[in-house]
């Protein structure tokens, strides 16, 4: 069947060059790829800029014009006051928010994906709403809550805010993984003398774990990179995005570009390692 279906398409493709000039047909056939390549270029342009200017020895306060090449920004990342302090704070907040949101979100995902119960629709709505709420609204509404309750703004209010917007993303990611899981695997485990807990530990959890890990990584990157919601709830606490915001008003140390480059390279590396690991496990 497959051959009879693919034949006409193949014939059409091989017939086309005969009728048209070759060059035009190459362009026509690769129009999607060309578009995609241009889009990729557009996506990488600022990254290339960030990496290049991490090696700049700036002559102005904003590190916006090229002066001369130097490694000193990379060897002295913590040099300018605030870069590493804010980075450390962002990592701590990111870790705590990720932990909180992953635990809460994974539990919800398990309830939603595996069980039928009253109040499902309401739950789904409450998961969807934070994702449909613009960050300014979520950030400012939390601010009004904290101000009303006279909670001092700072480290913990940021963590709370981050957990709040991370939960929905964790739920959606883990739920997708759970829905792709064949429930017969769990039944097979029960049939093979595994009780509910053993079934969860030996079968369900290991199979859903990549999804949970992915959700945690997503939560961390959202938290680490968040500016708007943090800006409303940080008080005097300066996370890395807050530091960059402040610096953009005064002077931007080139170390900011170094941190940006490291984040890019690290995430790329992590993704590639993940790919290799995944391939090896499947092979």
């Amino acid at each position: 069947m497959a051959t009879t279906l693919s034949r006409p398409a193949a014939r059409a493709a091989s017939a086309a060059p005969a009728r048209r000039p070759r060059r035009q047909s190459w362009l026509r056939r690769h129009v999607v790829q060309i578009f995609a390549a241009v889009a990729l270029l557009y996506m990488f342009l600022p990254v290339a800029y960030v990496i290049a200017f991490s090696f700049n020895n700036p002559s102005d306060r904003y590190n916006s014009t090229w002066n001369s090449f130097t490694f000193s920004n990379w060897t002295d990342v913590c040099g300018p006051a605030g870069v590493c302090d804010s980075l450390k704070l962002s990592l701590e907040i990111g870790a705590l928010a990720t932990l909180g949101a992953t635990v809460l979100g994974t539990l919800i995902a398990f309830a939603l994906a595996r069980r039928r119960f009253g109040g499902r629709a309401t739950t789904n709505l409450l998961i969807f709403l934070p994702m449909a709420t613009p960050e300014v609204v979520m950030g400012s509404s939390l601010l009004t809550l904290f101000v009303n309750l006279q909670v001092p703004l700072g480290f913990w209010t940021i963590v709370i805010a981050h957990i709040t917007f991370d939960i929905s993303f964790v739920v959606v990611t883990v739920k997708a993984r759970l829905q792709g899981l064949d429930s017969r695997l769990e039944q097979a485990a029960m049939d093979l003398y595994a009780n509910e807990w053993q079934t969860f530990r030996r079968i369900t959890f290991p199979l859903v774990f990549p999804g949970i890990l992915g959700a945690a990584l997503l939560a961390f990157s959202l938290s680490f990179d968040d500016f708007i919601i943090t800006n409303f709830n940080s008080g005097q606490t300066v996370t890395f995005p807050m530091f960059v915001w402040g610096a953009s008003l005064r002077s931007i140390p080139p170390q900011v570009n170094v941190v940006g480059s490291i984040m890019f390279v690290a995430s790329l590396g992590l993704a590639l390692v993940g790919q290799v690991f995944y391939r090896r496990r499947r092979a």
Partner: peptide
Amino acid sequence: NLLLVLVIAPFFTSFLVRTLAWQAILA
């Protein structure tokens, strides 16, 4: 998979940092 990674990777450079990069590029 590699392309997918490449598409997402730029966005792990901090949101503010890449917007500042646009600021410099369009200066």
